[in-house]
Design a protein around this nucleic acid. Structure first.
Length: 435
RNA sequence: GCCCGGGUGGUGUAGCCCGGUUAGCAUAGGGGCCUGUCGAGCCCCAGACCCGGGUUCAAAUCCCGGCCCGGGCGCCA
């Protein structure tokens, strides 16, 4: 406290409490007036009575509008009569910080629900809703829990570059940026630099950061800008080691949410449990048989589609009662050059799916220089263009692997949100870069 | 990028198929009444058919184009 903000507040000899917030409702009954304020913890009702409350407080609150920002000092009512609030205060003093324009572009009280585009156009007002704030409180706890687990297990947080001089993988579209007199790109994934950090002798790392994809995706599960928690570890036996880390990290994140966000989960009507480990693992080529049994035909050696992901969830739900599951040993031909092959056809390449949605890709990476370069050729790429990356594998690379979990996707599925944009404060998609 | 669906007061919707009233309702807004409201209540007021073209005596309504939005697919986290 202190400074200009508390000027004009005098607690009085008898003391009192000080509250602040955004005006949620004003109910004027003539001789009595109620002003309900909300902040990110609670709702508080200020009760003003004619003849009891000083007249200047009535005059002050005459001009109040919904969403105005005020502070108040007063006596807390011990036996509050107000039902739908956490506290009731009889104010002795009110400070108005900001009068809101009376015509709001949407209603944070949600008497008339707004559509998602309207909400996102007016996101700062939308964010005032306790249900919306709950999503981000939960997300923060989720990340806290995952980071805590990683640190306790010897992982070091690192920052890898967001601007890269060469498109990091084939496939996903990249955003081009002007980099002095050259062209550069925003990273789609911190993948390759995590590997180079491993080669730099950092044995267990994670990078919590932003990724960009310039895909024209119009779906409820894609963002042009998203965050991932990307883990890489050295001296692994095989891809199973990365899977164990991934499932424990996720369990720790969810455990934290369950422990400290019960109020928010209840508000969102979400019944959350920490998933059991190990997560079920499905493997190619058996995946084709499972899908065949479920009436879905996918050509042997090819990748599956979105519908298959949902069918496989249905399968593991029936067989194991699980929402999280791994799919391992993808065909090498559908995965990037850097994955480690198990044999000629299949790779130690692992996806983690949650409720039928891909949450992460990962697995064991190829660390042997000659094989890595030959895999680049096999992909029809020019080894020269990737030399900036591959050359360091010639100077000592340990066996390693990792994964990158999409944070908004994890949050969305955990809370059964209908759209991933609900899990980003200010989401970016092909149509939206403002606000 | 391809395929579907949709744009009505500030917000959310009815009306559109089957063309013709003052375009209805809720909520927010303005004014009034009310001493315990809590989605407060009651009375009054103001406020809208995405843009352009076409068909027609007449278009929110039918047709074409554009713009915007949502969903499905592909790609991926």
């Amino acid at each position: 406290m202190g400074g200009r903000r508390s000027e004009g507040i005098h607690m009085g000899e008898e003391g009192g409490v000080k509250v602040h917030g955004w005006v949620s409702e004003i109910r004027d009954l003539g001789r009595i007036r109620f002003v309900v304020i909300r902040n990110w913890r609670e709702k508080i009702q200020l009760t003003l009575k004619r003849g009891v409350t000083p007249d200047d407080l009535f005059e002050l609150t005459d001009d109040l509008t919904q969403e105005s920002v005020i502070e108040a000092v007063g006596e807390e009512v011990a036996e509050k009569k107000a039902k739908a609030v956490d506290r009731e205060i009889v104010p002795a003093r009110i400070i108005v910080h900001s009068i809101a324009h009376p015509k709001l572009p949407m209603d944070p009280n949600w008497k008339v629900p707004a559509q998602l585009p309207t909400r996102l156009d007016n996101r700062p007002l939308d964010l005032r809703r306790p249900e919306v704030q709950a999503v981000f409180k939960i997300e923060a706890s989720l990340i806290h829990g995952m980071e805590e687990w990683l640190r306790e297990n010897g992982f070091l947080r690192v920052f890898t570059p967001a601007i890269i001089g060469a498109a990091s993988e084939s496939g996903a579209e990249v955003f081009r940026v002007q980099y002095f007199d050259r062209e550069a790109y925003l990273r789609q994934d911190p993948q390759l630099h995590r590997q180079l950090t491993i080669i730099g002798g950092f044995e267990r790392i994670y990078d919590l950061g932003v990724n960009w994809r310039a895909e024209l995706s119009h779906t409820p599960r894609h963002l042009s800008e998203f965050r991932s928690i990307a883990v890489e570890l050295a001296f692994i036996e095989n891809e199973q080691d990365t899977m164990r880390v991934e499932e424990e990290m996720i369990r720790a994140g969810i455990k934290r949410v369950v422990e400290e966000r019960s109020k928010e989960l209840e508000l969102l009507n979400v019944d959350l449990e920490v998933p059991k480990a190990p997560f079920p693992e499905l493997r190619f080529p058996k995946v084709y048989d499972i899908l065949e049994e479920m009436g879905k035909s996918v050509e042997y050696g090819e990748d599956y589609d979105t519908e298959s992901e949902r069918l496989l969830w249905q399968y593991v739900k029936q067989e194991y009662g699980a929402d999280f599951f791994f799919v391992n040993r993808f065909p090498f031909k559908v995965k990037p050059f850097y994955v480690m092959k198990e044999d000629e056809t299949w790779a130690r390449s692992v996806d983690l799916l949650y409720k039928g949605l891909e949450l992460s890709s990962g697995g064991q990476r190829e660390h042997r220089y000659d094989i890595l370069v030959s895999q680049i050729r096999e992909k029809g790429m020019n080894p020269k263009s990737l030399e900036w990356f591959t050359k360091f594998f010639a100077y000592g690379a340990p066996p390693h692997g990792g994964f990158a979990v999409g944070i908004e996707r994890l949050t969305m599925k955990m809370l059964d949100l209908p759209n991933i944009k609900e899990a980003a404060l200010f989401p970016r998609d092909p149509e939206r870069v403002l606000p």
